[in-house]
Design a protein around this nucleic acid. Sequence first.
DNA 1: GCTTTTAAAATGTCAGACATTTAAATGTAT
DNA 2: ATACATTTAAATGTCTGACATTTTAAAAGC
Lengths: 245, 245
Amino acid sequence: MKINPENKTDLSAQIAQAIRDAIVNGDMIVDQRLPSEAELADQFNVSRPTVREALKRLAAQSLIRTQRGAFGGAFVNRLSYEEAYGQQITTSTLLLSMNAVSFDVACEARYALERACAPLAAERRSPDHLATMRAEIHRQGQPGLSDESFCASDVTFHRALVDAAGNPVLSYQLAGAVEAMQPLMNMITFTARSREEILRLHTRIADAIETTNAPAAETALHELEAYTLMLGRDVMAARRIKKSG
Amino acid sequence: MKINPENKTDLSAQIAQAIRDAIVNGDMIVDQRLPSEAELADQFNVSRPTVREALKRLAAQSLIRTQRGAFGGAFVNRLSYEEAYGQQITTSTLLLSMNAVSFDVACEARYALERACAPLAAERRSPDHLATMRAEIHRQGQPGLSDESFCASDVTFHRALVDAAGNPVLSYQLAGAVEAMQPLMNMITFTARSREEILRLHTRIADAIETTNAPAAETALHELEAYTLMLGRDVMAARRIKKSG
DNA sequence: GCTTTTAAAATGTCAGACATTTAAATGTAT
DNA sequence: ATACATTTAAATGTCTGACATTTTAAAAGC
């Protein structure tokens, strides 16, 4: 992996790519120690700051971790779900906040993913997941609940639904979609009327999951998608006016 | 955003986080220029190499891009789908290759996502998408096709299915799942018998999409999932034996 | 007025030094 | 001999200052 040809891009980017390739190809295995910065600098014929910039790039992607002190160094990192979540959420949030993705598209993707989870959730849901969903439904019915709290509870509810599917990859994918929509969702004013409607649909979803009735859950999710879309569109319209004004 | 309290983590990580927050919170907008490295070093009271390490971290996440020369500098980057794909694929591939995710779980997630796309694809598929699917089916039936080529064609087929849904966020999510599974899929030996079976299912899927029969597409995808799982398990079993042997 | 040259500003890179952290090796006392 | 304290070495983290390269805008020249 050691060599890189004479091209004009950043040396630190080239070095990062070379090491990244080595990791992805399996030439370096988890927890294996990389050569020290000084050794890498020698091997690649660059200075230590350049090597360090390359290593920081890899650290930003959670590909490596570093440890100070004797017998420290840079080690290939076993990517954890938490780290993967973090990457996913950062990326998704930016895609949405930079308007590369519209609210409509994000909303559609999110509910498509949730519906994909529904059959698995109906099949595997534990009492614990159901209890969480019921508890959040109860909370959402409390009078005097702030919009932020309502929104947070909404997220917890949907998260329980997805986690009930028992597939961490799906949970991880959804996390991105749900978190990314949070800022926009938080702009929504949840009237008593809309809360009532959402509550009704949440209850239908929970009931469907409890009775392992996947199609009913999917139908309710469809309706919730349409309703969310309507609420979101009002907010987005208001946002556009504010921008142009 | 300028200050960061006295804690013991890396300064470059702290600075990267501060700038990241500013971008995500919208304090800095797309294409806005960051202060020069020297100015940032002043503001954060650190040296230029430390600032540079922070900037490289952000560059690794495609949050910023840099431009050399006068009036150059670091600019907030509009995250493109391509860049987001790249991030997603790197992360997903590592999750799978490091065995943090089993083949079964990845496979289940992938087909759950594809089924989520099916109704949308059935509704929106263009002649172009259908043509791609048909063409790949035809290719998969050619005798003398190598396993790699068969596999590549398989990816193109599924990609067309997902793209037909017309939701770039779903395409982006799937890209990760599909790409990540590639290395394992490539280890599969596709016998004439298994190719025939896959071809049959692909045809059913294409037919269902063409006739806007979403349920039929989902059913066929279910069967294809079960079949893929079976093929994959053989490979994974062989892999385990090789490791322990 | 157009072209060429120049200057300035910014990132990219290097070299060397010092600071800090950490664990092993060593030494010392009970 | 064991337990504890000390030293030491290796590594990352940080700083300073310098030079190289790239790029654009402004100045100079025709």
